[in-house]
Design a binder for these strands. Structure first.
Lengths: 155, 155
DNA sequence: CCGATTTGCATGCATTTGCATGTACTGCCC
DNA sequence: GGGCAGTACATGCAAATGCATGCAAATCGG
């Protein structure tokens, strides 16, 4: 006996369809965003790292914390950071309180590039999402996705 | 003068935050899904192709239609299909009505593998999404992401 | 009907990615 | 304190990916 909701679809089916729809929407939006001119000389993943660093209060962020935000393996992130460092966009520093750790910070140039791309990027997003959903719908979508993310098992 | 909504945040900012939250939720869920045992011998992208084919009414699907569903370049999809074909999971066939096109279909083995992985996958999804959101919330999230996807400019 | 442009897919090649592993450091238990 | 499992990051190497391009078929403009 599979449990059924009031509407007659099983709970697992509803969850699967919800995830499927969320995933497809993400793919569709991302496809349009990444093909735009904002990312002509920085990959989306690379921008994402700069963005996350720019949002970090202290300015410094551990590599493994960064890794939670990005859909990349640990080794790929390590090399991505290598590239950003070689381009002078971020700075590495050994973590003071943990000899294994590495701290990351934006350089001046990295912060400038993030802002520049960010402006374009935000505009692109608004042009895609703005006309698609009302403000109330966007707020609800924001709330639901935040709740979903917050409710996931920590690992 | 940037326009403001009733809550005091600008429309572009709301759109950007909504997208950011959707994206992070997708990353967080996907990270957990793809590390599970369901994908031990088939990458998520590869499964996704099998899944899409399994949902196709006629059984046959054009490569370029497939490409809309997947976050992959055309060339990468072409080679991904190469791999699936070499493993005997899909079958290629020149499109009858368009000499340039290629049609794709699941083989018996491909359909069986999709079903097998799909069962596990759906269970994993339900375990992640089910406890995080109520059924009503899931339905609303499903509706909003469908609307978002449907409202995007065609390309 | 013919040339020019566009579209759909494949392939060469450089880059990026992940897995497995190595290295250094931490924390735990005794 | 000494051994020992666990964590954080880097690196060798094979595989996957994207860009540019090639080629063939379709579509367009006259």
């Amino acid at each position: 006996m599979t449990p059924r909701t009031a509407s007659g679809t099983s709970a697992v089916r509803l969850a699967a369809e919800t995830w499927e729809s969320l995933f497809r929407a993400q793919v569709a939006v991302m496809r349009r965003l990444q093909s735009g001119p904002a990312f002509r000389d920085l990959a989306v993943n690379e921008y994402d790292v700069l963005f996350t660093l720019s949002r970090c209060p202290s300015g410094w962020l551990r590599l493994n914390e960064l890794n939670d935000n990005v859909l990349l393996s640990q080794s790929s992130l390590s090399r991505l950071v290598d590239r950003l460092e070689k381009r002078g966009l971020v700075e590495r520093m050994p973590a003071p309180d943990d000899g294994r750790g590495v701290l990351l910070k934006l350089t001046e140039e990295g912060a400038a590039l993030q802002k520049e791309i960010g402006r374009e990027h935000v505009r692109d997003i608004a042009e895609l999402v703005g006309p698609a959903l009302t403000a109330a719908e966007q707020r609800e979508l924001l709330r639901l996705t935040e709740k979903l993310r917050a409710s996931l098992p920590s690992r």
